[in-house]
């Protein structure tokens, strides 16, 4: 396994005719937890989707887990799990059925499902409740349970605390720390205070503008009024299974 699981070198990604990433460079090692900060529309979600092999690399080059993001996207996808804004649940299936389907589809270990459900507090009648009948927070917990049960090498979490109550947020933070301790690499795009990340990067205008691993002096975010300058910079750029979780 390569030491740097995520290697991006001046990656530009264009969706439609719009550059969603404008020359991102990033290096993340195995076992790191990286918090991605930035204003709305800065490119945080796009950066995560690029790392998942879901966005095209228009310029530059990138490798995830040693696989090229341009030519080996299928191999990249097998090693990553993405928790996006929209939860990946079928409304007509129960929580258990959703987990079994997702884990089987990913060729994961279905024996991890009971532990993941228990860890996220999805017990009792909730397990056999249809996902469409769950609250937003419960749906979010079920989506996190899928990720925990699947246990990919790289976790990409986009606003993972959204819809969660205080207790569930603490559980999620514990899960992230334990996963990192088990060797998983985790990228979290969040507006939450840095509770677990050892490293923080700031994204603005589709590029990484600050990285605690590279620069000790934090730069202020560009506010909404300066968002245009970010877009301008995009245009210029156009030229283990051993995850041992413990229920608290």
């Amino acid at each position: 396994m390569p030491n740097s699981l995520i290697l991006l070198n001046k990656v530009v990604s264009i969706v439609g005719q719009f550059p969603v990433l404008a020359g991102v460079s990033l290096q993340v090692d195995a076992g790191e937890v990286v918090l991605i900060e930035g204003p709305n529309g800065a490119g945080k979600s796009s950066l995560l989707r690029l790392c998942a092999g879901l966005l095209p690399v228009s310029r530059g080059d990138g490798q995830i887990f040693g696989f090229d993001l341009q030519t080996e996207r299928a191999q990249v996808r097998r090693h990553v799990g993405l928790l996006g804004h929209s939860v990946a649940l079928y409304d007509e299936l129960t929580v258990r059925e959703n987990l079994v389907f997702q884990i089987k589809a990913a060729r994961g270990d279905t024996t991890r499902i009971p532990l993941a459900l228990e860890l996220l507090g999805l017990t009792g009648r909730l397990i056999d409740t249809r996902a469409g009948s769950l609250s937003a927070g419960q749906r979010r917990r079920a989506a996190i349970a899928i990720l925990v049960a699947r246990n990919p090498d790289i976790w990409l979490l986009d606003e993972p605390h959204a819809s969660l109550d205080a207790r569930a947020r603490n559980i999620l933070d514990d899960i992230i720390l334990q996963a990192a301790a088990s060797g998983n690499t985790i990228l979290v795009a969040s507006h939450e205070p840095d509770a677990f990340a050892g490293r923080t990067i700031s994204v603005s205008g589709g590029v990484v503008v600050y990285d605690t691993a590279m620069d000790a002096t934090p730069r202020a975010f560009k506010g909404p009024d300066t968002a245009d300058s970010g877009e301008a910079s995009m245009v210029r750029a156009l030229s283990a299974d051993g995850g041992g979780y413990h229920v608290a």
Binding site: R77, Y90, A105
Partner: peptide, 13 residues
């Protein structure tokens, strides 16, 4: 939904 579409692709089906 974007979430389900992505999950199918990422599952490596």
């Amino acid at each position: 939904s974007e979430g389900l579409h992505d999950s199918i692709i990422l599952a490596g089906i």
